[in-house]
């Protein structure tokens, strides 16, 4: 959205008339009905870009909140195979959404900047990860290549206790097991 987008104080509900087809280009939250009138799709605020003659309606509470390209999401690894990992996306960062219910997929090429023999060297089932969304459709493609993305909490594959990060390694404080992951610099336990 450009800077010339002016917000109006007007609250509209679905079906409210916003203008006629010739006045604006229609953006998200608006549509053109059979008689050529621009109407609102949502309950929300009207935003008008006077320079580009574009009209948009934004929902009053930002709903529905589903993952979008570029969003940072938190998820739990559901299953891992040699080249793929399936993630249950549990929340979207910087939103007050409590839970989402979508599946994300990480391909091995998106797991690390370095060469990986197998996905098991980057993620294991049960790990909590921070990832970035790459596309706009379900199933969502995710990446954990960046240093601030990756595992933020992991569990020992031998005894199940929480792993601690020491230098660049994950060590189990109970059984001393050393594990390999693609950890984020935001790993929560040290």
């Amino acid at each position: 959205m450009s800077d010339s987008m002016a917000s109006t104080k007007k609250l509209v509900s679905p079906g409210d008339e916003l203008g006629v087809e010739e006045e604006y280009f229609t953006g998200p939250g608006t549509y053109i009905d059979r008689k050529g009138k621009i109407r609102s799709q949502l309950l929300g605020k009207v935003l008008i870009d006077i320079v580009n003659r574009r009209i948009v309606v934004k929902h009053i509470k930002g709903k529905p909140r589903i993952p979008r390209q570029g969003d940072i999401v938190i998820g739990i690894v559901e299953s891992v195979s040699n080249d793929l990992a399936f993630i249950d996306i549990t929340s979207i960062e910087n939103t007050n959404v409590k839970s989402t219910d979508f599946t994300g997929i990480i391909h091995i090429s998106q797991a690390s900047k370095e060469y990986l023999e197998t996905m098991y060297d980057a993620l294991r089932v049960g790990d909590v990860i921070r990832a970035k969304v790459l596309n706009n459709s379900n199933p969502y493609q995710l990446t954990i290549k960046d240093p601030n993305l990756g595992v933020i909490a992991a569990f020992c594959t031998k005894c199940g206790s929480l792993l601690k990060k020491q230098d660049d390694r994950l060590i189990c404080p109970v059984c001393g097991n050393i594990e390999k992951r693609k950890t984020s610099i935001l790993y929560m336990f040290r």
Partner: peptide, 11 residues
Amino acid sequence: LADAGIPMRDL
């Protein structure tokens, strides 16, 4: 539906 922000043609 309007509360949930589902795009609709009208109520």
